[in-house]
Design a protein around this nucleic acid. Structure first.
Length: 304
DNA sequence: GTGCGTTCAAAGTGATTAAG
DNA sequence: CTTAATCACTTTGAACGCAC
């Protein structure tokens, strides 16, 4: 079980360490374990609870109200929140949820194919798969599903994306750009990376796909050889990166000649220091827009 | 009923000191 | 340098009373 310091929790949840201590004192919200020298530390379960509390606070609840709730009530509120956020394609998403809970591969694939037929693969990713994965994340957070469920469905989604990527004919174009795609060491959530691969190839650009869990030290050599216009990565797994900003800054140092595009839920929830070679993409439509419409390869982006 | 001012509690944060 | 603990302060919003 992973141990988190109070500053790790601050980084991952955006709740100030000071505030966490005050909550502990005023509401006995979470009583952390202590080291021999009286330093607080937290485990996975505590992190989940903090993430849940953070979501409920964002939804407008007060900390005094949350403090009165049982863990069960917090969980059900979170699940209700995820229901509210899912619009339009809620039927398909519910069907995917059921298939996941029943570990029913046939049902999952059929639901996905039906959606792709009626919406296209891109729209299915946007309107169905991402909201579904968001819901899966919530379900994991409150303990409704276990890692096996998550592995089961991610495998199926990845398979479908790989098939879609292979079905694209490679077109050589004078204006084609080169993208290098990778996930850093410890990061295994590959769906967004595969989807980016699909988007780039379908727009007639070139991709060097390096996949998941890649040590940073190996990247510079590959990038020097391939010399991409952009390097794209995603940060999603909060249990691996205690401070996303530090990791991004390290990537920029390791890759000193290229523009880095970073996306994923961790950059959505954390403050990433701006850099002249860094583009932070917080939402998928922004990524699609960037890949589709970027005509300014030499223009660099500043984000806040 | 509406608008305004006052009071109070809740919540978050700053500053400080001490300890490791 | 980081963390713990504490006090004091600010901000915010709800509740209330009062005049119109």
């Amino acid at each position: 079980m992973k141990k988190f310091s109070i500053s790790d929790i601050e980084c991952l949840t955006n709740i100030k360490a000071h505030t966490i201590r005050v909550w502990e004192q005023r509401y006995c919200l979470i009583t952390p374990k202590r080291t021999e020298t009286n330093i607080r530390y937290y485990d996975d379960q505590d992190l989940r609870k903090f993430l849940n509390i953070s979501l409920l606070l964002d939804s407008g609840l007060r900390i005094s109200e949350i403090a009165k709730m049982s863990n069960k009530e917090i969980s059900s509120r979170i699940l209700k929140l995820s229901e509210c956020e899912v619009n339009g394609c809620s039927c398909t998403i519910n069907s995917l949820c059921n298939a996941m809970l029943a570990l029913d591969e046939l049902m999952f694939n059929q639901t996905m194919e039906n959606s792709i037929t009626s919406l296209s693969i891109e729209q299915t990713m946007l309107d169905v798969i991402y909201p579904f994965l968001h819901k899966v994340g919530m379900m994991w957070q409150v303990g409704t599903i276990n890692p096996a469920h998550e592995h089961f469905i991610t495998h199926l989604i990845k398979q479908r994306l790989i098939a879609a990527i292979h079905s694209i004919e490679t077109v050589s174009s004078k204006v084609a750009r080169k993208y290098m795609l990778f996930l850093p060491e410890g990061e295994t959530h590959e769906i967004s990376l595969l989807f980016a691969n699909y988007l780039i190839k379908s727009r007639g650009h070139h991709v060097l796909y390096l996949g998941q869990n890649l040590p940073l030290d190996d990247l510079e050599e590959v990038a020097s050889f391939y010399d991409p216009d952009y390097i794209i990565t995603f940060l999603i797994s909060s249990t691996h990166f205690t401070c996303p900003n530090q990791l991004v800054q390290k990537m920029l140092e390791t890759l000193p000649r290229w523009t880095l595009l970073v996306s994923g839920s961790l950059v959505l929830n954390n403050t990433i220091e701006p850099h002249e070679r860094l583009k932070v993409v917080r939402h998928v439509p922004e990524l699609i827009d960037f890949i589709t419409n970027d005509t300014e390869v030499n223009n660099l982006y500043f984000t806040c």
